[in-house]
Design a protein around this nucleic acid. Structure first.
Length: 431
DNA sequence: TCTGGGGTCCTAGGACCC
DNA sequence: TCTGGGGTCCTAGGACCC
């Protein structure tokens, strides 16, 4: 017998997180439309309320909204992940005081177990918001409900409707039903464009209607995922609370190029840089990879130009997190996928990446009967990491990557200072 | 001129085995 | 002329998330 859950789960979600981070350090950004751009300064990935109000949508490409931005004086900033990552850590640190059990779900959202707070849970959530605001300057909203999907829904309501005062509690059936009848099905966590279209075709347009859909029909229209989602909307918890992060399965470093990469050398430089970064990430997490895949492709938004895309994988044996081994493997794989004209020029690749799979903790690597000679051992990697840690990223790189990056590096022309993590970029106050 | 990056999960279908 | 069935594993691709 499956019974609905009565354990309250809170979702605390930072409002317009990237923009809010920027505003903490530059108060001039308050009250005006601000957007934060994706890598390569391509699209808007975060918008202030003012930017949303003038019609800028999530993911809008900058070149398409240039007029709108000019008309309304929109301030656009390149993304500054160093800053956002550090601010995110500070937000989570604050939450430690509010529950022994929480799950950091993304850079700006955390699920918090509020079991045991009884009738005080709303007051507790309000105190949590105030504490985060005080400690970091970041505004948040909280949704409370018996399942993760419903707490996402509650959070959405808290953000949309000021009547809730930033905390929406959907533990009560009547409030929950009221809210669910008013939320469009496409806004539900787990319903994307494709599923939304299928549901609307079935006449299902609200969260309440999706909740009342027969489970079997849910499975037929979608998959087991949609069936589970329907159950979650009924208050049956199907998605586990992961307070211990699961072992990650893959890892990727991919970038768009500032200008198309025409020659194999330039592509190899970019892929070397990505493989180098990927190896660093592996070592930071104490992992090794069993498979490396490289891919590169031309600009899909320009179908009138010649198109080409390639993806090649290599097994790493022995498994590795060694920069030199990964760079070598990446280039060998790229050579197999490379397509150039007779003069040696390629198609102008605009994006390339390195993907690592079959990750396991370094200490779990199976021993080999006949291990190959590996002169570039862990000590060299330690030294490499120590130098780049002390003197700054990319101070020491492989010759394959080199220091001349103009041909492929990503654009980030409007990045704010790394206020909290670089001593040279501290904010300065003049009195 | 200019369109992000890094993840997870599920399914279908082919290869392979007995 | 007739030519199985059931299981597992792997991969590619789709959908979704932030």
């Amino acid at each position: 017998m499956i019974v609905p859950s009565d354990k309250p789960i809170a979702l605390i979600d930072c409002n317009n997180f990237y923009v809010s981070c920027e505003r903490v350090f530059d108060p001039r950004l308050h009250g005006i439309p601000v957007i934060v751009l994706s890598n390569n300064d391509g699209c808007a990935v975060a918008r202030s309320d003012e930017s949303k109000a003038i019609g800028i949508r999530m993911g809008d490409p900058v070149f398409k909204i240039r007029d709108l931005m000019k008309r309304h004086g929109v301030v656009a900033l390149s993304s500054n992940y160093t800053l956002y990552g550090d601010m995110s850590r500070r937000v989570v640190d604050t939450l430690h005081d509010f529950s022994p059990r929480f799950e950091v779900y993304s850079i700006d959202e955390t699920f918090v177990d509020l079991s045991g707070f009884g009738s005080r849970m709303e007051a507790h959530a309000t105190a949590m918001r105030a504490a985060v605001r005080r400690a970091t300057g970041i505004p948040t909203c909280v949704g409370i409900a018996p399942t993760k999907t419903l707490s996402k829904l509650a959070n959405y309501a808290a953000k949309k409707n000021p009547i809730f005062g930033g905390v929406c509690n959907l533990m009560r059936d009547d409030v929950r039903d009221y809210v669910m009848q008013r939320i469009p099905v496409g806004e539900i966590w787990g319903v994307g464009r494709a599923t939304e279209a299928k549901l609307i075709a079935q006449g299902i347009t609200t969260a309440a209607q999706l909740r009342d859909m027969p489970l079997a029909l849910g499975r037929k229209v979608g998959t087991v995922v949609l069936e589970r989602l329907v159950a979650e909307l009924r208050g049956v918890a199907c998605i586990d609370f992961e307070d211990v992060p699961p072992q990650r399965k893959g890892m990727a470093v991919t970038r768009s190029a500032g200008t198309p990469m025409m020659t194999f050398d330039v592509l190899a430089q970019a892929l070397s840089a990505h493989a180098t970064r990927a190896a660093e990430k592996l070592r930071q997490h104490g992992l090794v990879a069993g498979t490396i895949t490289v891919f590169f492709h031309t600009n899909k938004h320009k179908p009138e130009r010649p198109q080409h895309s390639a993806s090649r994988s290599v097994r790493l044996s022995p498994m590795s997190n060694n920069t030199f081994e990964l760079v070598e493997a990446a280039i060998a794989a790229a050579r197999r996928g490379w397509k150039g004209d007779p003069s040696g020029n390629g198609c102008g690749y605009t994006k390339a990446g390195v993907v690592l799979d079959d990750l396991i903790p370094q200490e779990d690597v199976p021993a080999m009967l006949f291990p190959p000679e590996r002169p570039r051992n862990a000590k060299v990697m330690d030294a490499l990491d120590a130098i780049n840690d002390r003197f700054g990223k990319k101070k020491m790189v492989t010759a394959r990557e080199g220091f001349d990056k103009k041909a492929w590096t990503t654009k980030a022309d409007m990045r704010s200072p790394r206020y909290t993590t670089r001593i040279t970029e501290l904010p300065v106050i003049r009195i």
